[in-house]
């Protein structure tokens, strides 16, 4: 897999810790959404974060590329501490790719343009090179033939795979997934999960908020269970599913694993 350009070339020199959160707290107004979260993610690790809705799992990963601001504690991403400094935020966002529940593709641009936009404007890549790169990743997610269509003409599953390709075009070292399959028809969940599995096999550092427990078993190094803004339980997948420690975890698992 080392020849695959999916992993940035300076991988060897990159910090060993991908994400480090220490005592992170966040409030929405008076609502205490993240309470003293501590989390360390090593390079190449795949984390699955689950938990009931409103438990702060989306907020947690959105803090990693500063779509949300944390108000207390330290977040260090790829050796860069997130502060108000816009330069650092830019640096982090260049290294961290993200996929959303509703894809958030740009509807006025073609699939190819969606993928080349950031490489051309942020990485200042020449157009030709950006297009080659985009086609490479579109092939990787198995939709190169749709490159000149608009997002609205694709199915949900295809759109989400384009969103993954779009993120990969920035050559991120870390990928965040915020419920990537929740808005999809059941028929399309698998094609997106397959893409994510292949990404995991290539050694990408991944943090996924998802309720796809099959996916968690297959690729995750660790599964995190969150409730009320706290990490309640963290374990490797087999132990997590077969032997949950915390009452809240047991209740949650009994409700989603029928």
């Amino acid at each position: 897999m080392s020849a695959d350009p999916i992993i940035a070339a300076d991988e060897a020199t990159a910090p060993k810790i991908a994400v480090e959160m220490t005592g992170v707290n966040k409030w929405y107004g008076d609502f205490h959404v993240l309470r003293d979260v501590n989390l360390t993610v090593e390079r190449g690790e795949r984390l699955v974060i689950c938990g009931p809705s409103g438990s702060g799992k989306s907020t947690l990963i959105r803090c990693i590329n500063r779509l949300e601001e944390h108000q207390k504690g330290r977040i260090v991403v790829d050796g860069i501490e997130l502060t108000d400094d816009l330069k650092r935020i830019d640096e982090v966002r260049r290294e961290v790719g993200m996929c959303f529940q509703h894809f958030n593709l740009f509807p006025h641009l073609t699939i190819l343009e969606n993928c080349t936009l950031a490489p051309m404007w942020v990485r200042k890549m020449p157009k030709k090179e950006a297009e080659d790169l985009a086609m490479h990743f579109l092939e990787k997610v198995k939709i190169p033939h749709q490159a000149h269509k608009y997002p609205g003409q694709l199915s949900g599953g295809q759109q989400q795979r384009v969103a993954i390709a779009r993120a990969l075009c920035m050559r991120p070292r870390i990928m965040l997934f915020d419920e990537p399959t929740s808005a999809l028809d059941p028929e399309m969940v698998k094609e997106v999960l397959d893409t994510m599995v292949s990404l995991a096999q290539d050694g990408m550092t991944m943090l996924c908020v998802t309720h796809e427990m099959g996916f968690a078993r297959q690729v995750a190094n660790r599964v995190i269970f969150m409730d009320a803004g706290q990490i309640v339980e963290m374990n490797e997948p087999n132990a997590f599913f077969s032997n949950p420690q915390h009452e809240r975890t047991k209740l949650f698992l009994s409700q989603i694993l029928h």
Partner: peptide, 27 residues
């Protein structure tokens, strides 16, 4: 989501407005 999508791929606010938000808003 459009703002978030643009920010997540690393576009700064000026570029985000010019390339993503304004073309759609003006249309």
């Amino acid at each position: 989501g459009q703002y978030e999508g643009a920010m997540a791929v690393g576009l700064r606010s000026g570029l985000m407005m010019r390339l993503v938000v304004l073309p759609q808003a003006l249309k």
